[in-house]
Design a protein around this nucleic acid. Structure first.
Lengths: 144, 144
DNA sequence: TCCTTTCGTTTACAAATGTAATCATATAAC
DNA sequence: GTTATATGATTACATTTGTAAACGAAAGGA
């Protein structure tokens, strides 16, 4: 049941999700408040985004009186990971390492995560190839 | 001159770029050929994508006779990196480590890149925080 | 009870994207 | 030279996204 046929999430929608993830179960008022502080969007815009997120199945709307209470249907890390994966999927295998390295450099990372990475890398090193071939062409060049 | 005001690149357009990056200087015929092998797109569609890429400035079209020769104006890794960066920018700081770790796990990476990562991690460990605070709300919760 | 907020709902509209047909023309093949 | 082919240019059209106005009903205040 985790594989609903969800469409992807857009930039602005993502911004709304962040609020919901952080606040947990919440309602329009709160979302409006938080987004007013972060973004220069009209309330109308924000309401549209919420509506679309519900339509798309990323938010659940529980009717309470005339209001709604919203909850995210996916965890933030799942969503983050999926988006990241989708992105890497369009990219050439050969250069993924380089890109991940750059992300690593540019992102703030906790000691704990760094240690896990350390470990993962040690594991991978055992069987890592000297070079990952390019997969940009159906058949042909292994270098790009 | 590297900071043209380029719009972003779409999924399908990316697929065209991969071909050009791999082939280097090339022309429609080649692009069509490679993409016919990979994608189920009509020639028309591919031609539209090429045109849009030229418009957007991602491809340069040099007129030679009645044909064009196309060249990419950005390197693949630059583009990959930018896209990855854009993606991470929308995400909560707190969870970036986790996501990068997952990408690391799921991507094929060469020995060389792994070593560079090893090093980078050692560097970062020196000053890494125990926890990276959430930045989803303008001011408020540091945890999400 | 009447007015004013607050929400949810409906409608709008331009730009970007996915996907393609058609048409004119330059070329290559016959 | 005439025809078939390749190629660029024009036009099309539905969907998604960004961004928002407007309207109606409910709820809270006065």
């Amino acid at each position: 049941m985790n594989e609903k046929n969800l469409s992807s999430i857009s930039d602005s929608e993502w911004e709304v999700m962040r609020i919901v993830w952080t606040l947990g179960e919440t309602h329009t008022k709160q979302i409006l408040k938080e987004l007013r502080a972060k973004k220069d969007w009209s309330d109308s815009t924000i309401k549209t985004l919420i509506r679309r997120l519900v339509q798309k199945g990323w938010l659940t709307a529980k009717h309470e009186g005339r209001r709604y209470t919203y909850t995210a249907t996916v965890s933030q890390t799942d969503m983050m990971y999926n988006e990241a994966k989708t992105l890497l999927n369009r990219m050439c295998d050969m250069h993924k390492g380089e890109v991940i390295l750059k992300l690593l450099k540019d992102s703030p990372i906790s000691k704990g995560d760094l240690m896990k990475m350390q470990e993962e890398i040690s594991q991978k090193e055992k069987t890592a190839p000297n070079m990952v071939p390019c997969n940009c062409l159906k058949n042909g060049s292994t270098i790009c």
